[in-house]
């Protein structure tokens, strides 16, 4: 990929002999560098980028297990995209909407809980800080895959932890995973449990770097605790929390493990989000082109989120807060 740009650079500078010499000279002098970067580039290109381009191409065809089997794969233009997004009734549209709800609810809970807990942990004369901190970050340290499977068992209607606990209190068992609406709440609970410790850690780190002097000055001016929070703590947390929030948004949006392990997208697709939906379309329906189409759409949404991220980060550094 980069080799092409080099070649065109050489052509551009062909007019000035001096430049060409210096470019060649620089390439020759640094030839070891190309040797160093080549293996990684080669692996990424052949194993990933080439298949990705092929996959994007597939989204304009009607490839599935059937058409590929009897050789009737043909170019169908944007039909897959129209099918995915063409009408509000389309299944994918519902899934996409659910993914947005899932992302917003989760990220909001992660950031709010993370902040509140970090503020509590940051109190100056608090005892047992270390113990609290370690226990609170445990959900982050355990691999997500294992956690998700364990929660699935805890939600088990007969023998799971929750219904047994409710049984002790004399409360009727809840259909955690067989009722669509409750199942969606159940997976959100799992993901909130998994995600807030990361935000707590980021916020704790940022809080520790805020100088005590600000608060002392505010105390002299007679500021209330609320005012200190609003005018000192929160603005100074922003540079650390904003990138973490955007990162969290992308992770939550593309999360696969939690929903797939706990509900598999069911019951009757009630908890399906884009990543699980795409996987199920690929593995259950063998609709290769449709799966690729969804993949491209998700990617475009993620690129938009990333662009917003870059803009916000740039705005922050222009403000001089970073």
């Amino acid at each position: 990929m980069f080799l092409h740009t080099d070649v065109s650079n050489i052509n551009d500078t062909v007019l000035t002999k001096k430049n060409r010499n210096s470019l060649f000279y620089r390439m020759k002098k640094n030839r070891m560098a190309y040797l160093y970067i080549l293996p990684a580039m080669l692996v990424v290109f052949t194993v990933s980028i080439f298949p990705i381009i092929y996959g994007i191409g597939l989204s304009f065809f009607n490839a599935n297990l059937y058409t590929m089997g009897n050789g009737t794969v043909k170019f169908i233009g944007l039909k897959n995209y129209v099918k995915a997004l063409g009408s509000i009734d389309a299944e994918f549209f519902v899934v996409l909407l659910r993914t947005f709800i899932w992302t917003i609810v989760n990220v909001f809970a992660h950031v709010t809980l993370g902040l509140i807990i970090a503020l509590a942990l940051n109190r100056q004369n608090l005892k047992f800080k270390g113990i609290y901190r370690t226990l609170i970050i445990l959900p982050w340290a355990v691999p997500q895959f294992v956690t998700a499977l364990v929660w699935k068992m805890m939600y088990h209607e007969q023998f799971g932890f929750f219904n047994q606990f409710l049984g002790l209190l004399g409360i009727e068992p809840i259909h955690w995973l067989s009722n669509g609406k409750i199942a969606f709440i159940a997976v959100i609970i799992v993901n909130i449990w998994l995600g807030f410790p990361f935000m707590t850690m980021v916020a704790t780190g940022a809080l520790q770097s805020i100088s005590r002097e600000y608060y002392e000055a505010a105390d002299i001016d007679g500021a209330t605790a609320m005012q200190k929070l609003r005018y000192i703590t929160l603005p100074l947390l922003k540079p650390a929390m904003l990138p973490a929030t955007i990162l969290g948004t992308i992770w939550t949006f593309t999360n696969f493990n939690v929903i797939y392990m706990v509900t598999g997208g069911g019951p009757s697709k009630a908890t399906e989000i884009v990543s699980t939906y795409q996987f199920n379309v690929l593995t259950r329906q063998n609709a290769y082109s449709m799966a690729a189409t969804y993949s491209v759409i998700v990617s475009i949404i993620l690129i938009i989120i990333t662009l917003i991220n870059m803009k916000v980060t740039k705005a922050l550094s222009d403000e001089g807060v970073e």
Binding site: M1, F2, L3, T5, D6, N9, L23, R26, M27, N30, M32, A33, Y34, Y36, I37, M41, V44, V47, S48, I49, F50, P51, I52, Y54, G55, I56, L58, S59, A63, S275, Q278, L282, Y288, A291, A292, S295, V296, V298, S299, L302, I303, T306
Partner: peptide, 29 residues
């Protein structure tokens, strides 16, 4: 550590790569 022609393009290509639809690659892979 090296200042070689194509360095920026190489680094940028990794950023672009991170934004590509990786799951679209599954079937071709």
């Amino acid at each position: 550590r090296f200042d070689f022609p194509g360095k920026k393009a190489g680094l940028a290509s990794y950023v672009i790569y991170m934004m590509l639809p990786t799951t679209a690659a599954l079937v071709p892979q």
